[in-house]
Simulated assay, not measured.
Amino acid sequence: MKTKHNTLYSILDLALVSEGHTLKQTYNNALKLAQNAETFGYTRYWLAEHHNSSNIGSSATSVLIGYVAQGTTTLRIGSGGIMLPNHSPLIVAEQFGTLGALYPNRIDLGLGRAPGTDRETAEAIRSDFQQAAHSFPKELDKIETYFSVENSKAKVRATVAEGINVPIYILGSSTDSAHLAAKKGLPYAFASHFATTHLWDALAIYRQEFKPSEVLQKPYTIVGCNIIIADTDEEAERLSTSLIRMIVGIFTGKRDYVQPPTDMTNEFRDILQNPQIHQMLKYSFIGSKATVKAQIKEFIDKTQADELIAVNNIYGIDDRIKSYQLFSEIMKELN
């Protein structure tokens, strides 16, 4: 199968806090990355929503989106995603309507149904979290209503959102949201940078069940992957040790700041062979530009994705930016 023409490429950022960095430095680095991404030809830069995790700075997602949008000019800035069960649809519509008015035609609203945190924190955010998660489709309908001009006659309005152009994307890490995105005729983004098991089923369901809508005539897929690209395979492997430690922290419940890279050891190689970790990092492309280019080409051919959204868990901002620069070169060459 041939690579489709012009697969777009984007960035998903968690505003990861590296060891020895303040939150202010972390946010400044997120902006610096976005500014560079703009010059590299990236389509969008999305920030995730996570809570109660010392190594992730993107908790107040809409605030960070505003900060990054203010410091950039053409790049689309959005949420990957807002975890809707954590929030009232009215407040989300007001926040993103405001952002859409401030930065016209540049704001994306990606919505997910997972909590982006542990059970206790989810309940601290919203006591009826479980109920809200089950009514995700209804909550999504409410957001669409608040953005519609027709809602101007309603009793309850998000006046700052009415008629504002903020496209909605459905995010998924299992097959549930694929059915919903297809039924609603909305673009679909799959979190295969960590949830690798259901990627193929989710894409197949979404494409088979897709119903055209006012916003989208045919299916549109965004697929996540991890990328760590450096001048040599050895250097990229070295940089990847920060990611390996981070993954181990997730499995052991000892979440820590992103650690500086160290030499790749046999111990790290053994960790990568652990079946759970191996599965989780299945769509992680690590190496020199030439090495990763071949892997990315195969990945695009298989997924037929309209867009790749890349995550990169590198300790240092300069290495992170360079990795994204090399990824953009790969995408330009493949396109």
Score class of each variant (00 low, 15 high):
Asn312Ala: 14
Phe136Asp: 01
Ala60Gly: 10
Ile205Phe: 04
Trp200Val: 10
Gly66Arg: 09
Ile11Gly: 00
Leu109Met: 11
Lys254Tyr: 09
Ala202Cys: 06
Ala236Phe: 11
Ile65Ser: 03
Gly100Arg: 01
Asn151Met: 03
Leu8Thr: 05
Tyr103Asn: 03
Ala122Met: 07
Val63Tyr: 07
Asp128Ile: 11
Leu75Glu: 06
Phe147Arg: 01
Ser240Cys: 05
Asn151Phe: 04
Leu334Val: 07
Leu33Arg: 09
Val160Cys: 11
Leu272Asp: 00
Ser135Gly: 07
Ser173Val: 03
Thr159Gln: 12
Leu102Asn: 06
Gln259Met: 10
Tyr206Ala: 04
Ile228Thr: 15
Leu99Arg: 10
Pro137Leu: 13
Glu139Tyr: 10
Pro275Met: 06
Lys218Ser: 11
Ser323Asn: 04
Leu326Asp: 01
Leu84Met: 08
Ala310Pro: 08
Ile244Trp: 02
Leu272Met: 15
Met246Pro: 00
Lys24Cys: 05
His198Gln: 13
Ile143Gly: 02
His179Arg: 11
Lys211Gln: 14
Pro104Trp: 05
Lys2Thr: 10
Leu272Trp: 05
Tyr146Leu: 08
Asp319Ile: 02
Asp301Gln: 13
Lys332Arg: 14
Phe285Pro: 00
Glu120Pro: 02
Leu171Arg: 00
Thr43Gln: 12
Phe129Trp: 15
Phe136Asn: 01
Leu109Lys: 08
Lys218Met: 05
Asp263Val: 13
Glu307Thr: 00
Leu272Gly: 02
Gln130Asn: 15
Gly41Phe: 12
Tyr188Pro: 01
Gln208Thr: 15
Phe136Glu: 02
Gly80Met: 03
Ala236Lys: 01
Ala181Val: 14
Ser135Glu: 15
Asn151Gln: 14
Ala178Glu: 00
Lys24Thr: 08
Glu19His: 13
Gly97Gln: 02
Ile296Pro: 00
Val215Asp: 09
Met1Thr: 09
Ser323Lys: 04
Thr252Arg: 08
Ser284Ala: 15
Asp270Phe: 04
Gly172Ser: 06
Glu144Cys: 05
Tyr324Trp: 06
Asn105Pro: 02
Leu216Pro: 00
Ala290Val: 13
Glu333Arg: 02
Leu23Met: 15
